[in-house]
Computed example of a mutant assay.
Amino acid sequence: MRISAAERRRRVGVRHMLAPSARVGDVTEIASRLVGLHATDPASVVLSAWARSAEPDGVVAALDAALYEQRSLLRMHCMRRTLFVVPDELAADLQASTTRVVSARERASVLKLLAATGPHRDEAWLAEAEDAALKVLARLGTAAASEITAEVPVLQETVTMSPGKPYEAVSRVGGHVLRLLAMDGRVRRARPVGGWTSGQFTYEIAPPLRDADPAAAQAEIVRRWLACYGPAATEDVKWWTGWTLGAARKALAEVGAVAVELDEGPGWVLPGDEAETGDVEPWAALLPSLDPATMGWKHRDWYMAPELRPLLFDTAGNGGPTVWWDGEIVGTWAQRDSGEVVWRMLADRGAGAEAAVAAEAARLEAWLADRRLRIKFAAPLTRELLS
C-alpha cells in the first residue's frame, strides 16, 4: 500500500493537533499524544502547547500546574540526549528505553572531564559529590543549583570545557552533578528561576520510577510515536529516538508495524492505520523552534522543500521558528522588541494562505502582549527578520 505525501500532511494537521478542529484543551494530552515537547528552549514548550490548545489563554497556568502541582508532566533528558517535557506515565519507559543509555554516556563524559583536571577526581569522588548534593537537597526540599552548590564546597570546584578552543568555557562541578542526578532519575526539575522563558530551574528529590524492561519500553515508545508520526521510515524512528538501527527495527517488529510505501521509500504504520484521513480544513500555524512537528522526522522533503533547509535550520540541525500551511513548512517568523510578530512566506500558496498566516500571526501577537521572546535556536532567516 502507498501513502502519499498529501495524506501525510493531512495527518499532521489532525494528529499534531494543529488544524483548529483538532486542537485540545488539556496540555498533558498534547504532550502525551506528541510523546513529548522539546524543552531545550523553555519558550518552545509553551508555544508548542499554545499552537495546539483549544484554550490558549490558559496555557501558561495549565503547564505550570501540570509540571509542578499535578505532576502529570515531567522535564527529562531522553531522545537524542535532548530535554523534553513528557507525560509522567511515560517517564519510566523513556528512562528504560533511552535515558539510561544517555546517562551512562554522559557520566563517562563527565568523568573524562574531571580526570583531565586531577587524578583524584575519579568515580568515587563523583559519587561522593552526588551524595553530598542529595543530602543538601533533601534538607532544603526545593532549591536552585546555586543554592545547592553554595552548601557543598566540592560542587564549587571548576572544570574547563573544550580547553584551547575558541569556545573554551569554565563551569562549576555542581551543574554537571545535578545534570547526572536528573538523568539517573534521582532528582527532578521543579519551577524555573524566573518566568516561563527561563532555562534555570530549581530541583527536588524525585520519587522512584517503576521498573521497566528496556525492550518492552522501546516497543511502547515506538507504538506511541507511530500513532502520531506514522507513517515513517525506519531511519526516521532511529533518528528521532537516538537508538541503534537494530533497536529501531526490533521495536517496529515488536509492535507489528505494517509496511507501506512512501515517496522516499519503505515506511511503517501501526496495524489498522492504513486508511486515509478524512477532510481537514485548511490551517495555518506559527510553530516555535524545535517544535515536535518540525523535528519529527529525519526525512523532511514531504513537508518542507529541500532548498528551505539552510534558511530554517542551523548548522547543528536545529529547526528554528516555522510558518506552516496545510501540513507544509512555508516560511519563518519572529517577534521584534516592539512586540510585533513578523513573518515571511517562502512559498506561494495563494491569497488564502497569506491571509490565514497573517491572522495566526495577529492571534499570537495579541496573546504574547507584553511578553518578549528570546529565541534560543533562531534560524538564519529568522535573524534576518529581526535585523
Rank of each mutant, 00 (worst) to 15 (best):
Glu7Gly: 07
Arg8Ala: 01
Arg11Leu: 07
Gly13Gln: 02
Gly13Pro: 01
Val14Ile: 13
Leu18Phe: 11
Ser21Asn: 04
Ser21Ala: 14
Ala22Trp: 03
Ala22Arg: 02
Arg23Ala: 02
Gly25Val: 02
Gly25Met: 04
Thr28Cys: 08
Thr28Met: 06
Thr28Glu: 15
Glu29Gly: 00
Ser32Asn: 08
Ser32Asp: 15
Leu37Arg: 07
Ser44Cys: 07
Ser48Glu: 01
Leu63Cys: 01
Leu73Pro: 08
His77Met: 05
His77Trp: 12
Met79Gln: 03
Arg81Pro: 03
Phe84Asn: 04
Val86Gln: 05
Glu89Ile: 06
Ala92Arg: 05
Thr99His: 10
Thr99Ile: 06
Val102Ile: 14
Ser103Arg: 15
Arg107Trp: 03
Ser109Arg: 14
Ala115Ser: 13
Glu128Cys: 11
Ala129Gly: 09
Ala132Arg: 13
Ala133Gln: 01
Leu137Asp: 00
Ala138Pro: 00
Arg139Ala: 15
Arg139Cys: 08
Ala143Leu: 10
Ser146Phe: 13
Glu147Thr: 13
Ala150Arg: 13
Glu151Gln: 15
Val152Ala: 12
Pro153Tyr: 00
Val154His: 11
Val154Gln: 11
Gln156Cys: 09
Gln156Asn: 11
Thr160Pro: 01
Tyr167Ser: 12
Ala169Lys: 14
Ala169Ile: 12
Ala182Lys: 12
Met183Phe: 14
Gly185Leu: 00
Gly185Ser: 07
Arg188Thr: 09
Arg188Trp: 10
Arg189Ala: 06
Pro192Ala: 15
Gly199Gln: 13
Gly199Thr: 03
Glu204Tyr: 04
Pro207Thr: 08
Arg210Gly: 12
Asp211Met: 11
Ala217Arg: 05
Arg224Pro: 11
Ala227Glu: 12
Pro231Lys: 13
Asp236Lys: 08
Asp236Ser: 09
Trp239Val: 09
Trp239Glu: 11
Trp240Ala: 09
Gly242Lys: 01
Gly246Ser: 13
Gly246Lys: 15
Leu252Lys: 09
Ala253Ser: 15
Val255Ser: 03
Val258Tyr: 07
Glu264Lys: 12
Pro266Leu: 08
Val269Arg: 04
Val269Thr: 08
Leu270Val: 05
Gly272Cys: 03
Asp273Thr: 00
Ala275Asp: 15
Glu276Pro: 12
Gly278His: 06
Pro282Arg: 05
Leu286Gln: 11
Leu287Phe: 07
Leu287Tyr: 00
Ser289Met: 07
Ser289Pro: 03
Thr294Met: 12
Met295Ile: 01
Asp301Leu: 06
Trp302Glu: 08
Pro306Trp: 10
Leu308Thr: 06
Arg309Val: 13
Leu311Trp: 09
Asp314Val: 06
Asp314Trp: 02
Ala316Asn: 15
Asn318Ala: 15
Gly319Glu: 00
Ile329Met: 11
Ile329Cys: 04
Gly331Asp: 03
Ser338Glu: 10
Arg344Met: 04
Ala358Cys: 08
Ala358Val: 08
Glu360Tyr: 01
Ala361Thr: 01
Ala361Cys: 01
Leu364Met: 10
Trp367Asp: 02
Arg374Glu: 02
Ile375Phe: 09
Lys376Gly: 13
Phe377His: 15
Pro380Phe: 05
Thr382Gln: 12
Arg383Pro: 03
Leu385Cys: 10
Ser387Tyr: 07
